[in-house]
Amino acid sequence: MTISGTAWPRTRSSLAADLRRLGVRPGSTLLVHSALRPLGWVCGGPHAVVLALRDALGPDGTLVVPTHTPENTDPATWRNPPVPREWWPVIRDEMPGFDAAATPSRWMGVIAEAVRAWPGARRSDHPQVSFAAVGPRAEQVVGGHARADMLGERSPLARLYELDADVLLLGVGHDSNTSLHLAEYRRPDPPRERVGAAVRTADDGREWVWWEDVALDESDFDLLGEDLDTAGLVRAGEVGSAQCRLMRQRDAVDFAVRWLAANR
């Protein structure tokens, strides 16, 4: 949003106050899905937003963000845009191997990328759906992220569930709520698919690897989210100019397990 579209500057202190008003718990673990533009004009940009989030969480809180790399996937599945079939072998042979320390996140927004690069941040070692975290529980959240259980019981999402974390949708909708994918893994016999990505090797080279994983589908997450809102499990409010939602992750995942059983 431009300056002309913002009634008053959004600042570190004003955003922190909005976050506290919404219900961000000091000392909690908070998974944030975000977009900067809906907040309005922010003095200090994404850096100020991260500072505000950390202020609201306090020194005992842990901030977690998705730092996914969706371009590091099998090109045969690309749809937006698709690539010619003759390109597929080239992409599989030449895509740089995922490096948790250096590979930037893509399509997760500038706030998530700021957290990824934050001093002391820890990042999980998954070539497609990594998460980054800052705070005392960062390693507990991101450590041991299994390649073949990418958003399941051996992923940061399950660690967040164990920690009774909160989820903040900061200017984005339920279609960005990655925690709902954990519910897909908790369905009986979920559909599975072959997945591929480029990874680093022990000798600092790279290779393309394949594995089998749950076939993820967020196409109905907006509908799921509407029912989650209606069930009274979500706190809604404004942070800056953005419409935001805050929820306990356990409540959202448990609701989604029941919802998927009834609606898929």
Rank of each mutant, 00 (worst) to 15 (best):
S34W: 05
P46T: 01
H33I: 02
I91N: 00
V50Q: 02
R264A: 11
G237E: 04
G109V: 05
L53F: 09
T77F: 03
Q249V: 15
A52E: 04
D18T: 12
Q128C: 05
G225E: 12
P190M: 01
V32L: 04
R248D: 15
E238G: 05
G120W: 04
L246A: 05
H33A: 02
E71M: 06
R54C: 05
D251Q: 15
R21P: 03
D220L: 12
V209H: 03
G171H: 11
G205R: 14
S124E: 11
A117Q: 14
R137I: 02
C43I: 09
V199Q: 02
G58A: 11
R250Y: 09
G45K: 10
S13V: 08
S155P: 11
P46C: 03
A52C: 05
L30N: 03
D217L: 08
G44N: 05
A138L: 03
P119S: 04
G40N: 06
P190D: 00
A215D: 06
R206Q: 15
T178R: 11
L163C: 08
A76G: 13
N263S: 13
V129S: 07
G61W: 06
E193V: 07
L233H: 14
V50K: 00
E212G: 01
P81M: 04
D125I: 13
I111C: 02
L216G: 03
A261G: 14
E218T: 10
A138C: 03
V42T: 06
A132C: 06
C244I: 12
H33D: 02
A132M: 03
L15P: 13
D189I: 04
G144M: 10
A262H: 12
R12F: 00
H47V: 11
A197F: 01
A17M: 09
G240C: 06
G237Q: 01
E113I: 05
R20S: 15
G173K: 08
A138G: 08
R187D: 03
M95C: 15
A133K: 08
V42E: 09
R122S: 07
H174Y: 12
L19R: 07
R25C: 10
G143T: 14
G5M: 13
V209E: 04
T11N: 02
L39M: 03
D217Y: 10
R10P: 03
L168S: 08
R186N: 07
R54P: 02
A231N: 09
A132F: 00
A100T: 10
S179Q: 09
D55N: 11
I111Y: 00
P70V: 07
D251F: 04
A56M: 07
S179W: 00
G237D: 00
A252W: 07
H174I: 04
L168G: 06
A261Q: 09
L246I: 06
A101F: 13
M108C: 14
L223F: 12
R116H: 08
N177T: 07
T67G: 09
S105T: 14
D217K: 04
G61A: 02
V253A: 13
P156N: 13
T178F: 14
M95E: 10
R54Y: 00
R21Q: 14
R137T: 01
D203G: 08
A56L: 12
N72E: 01
E238C: 07
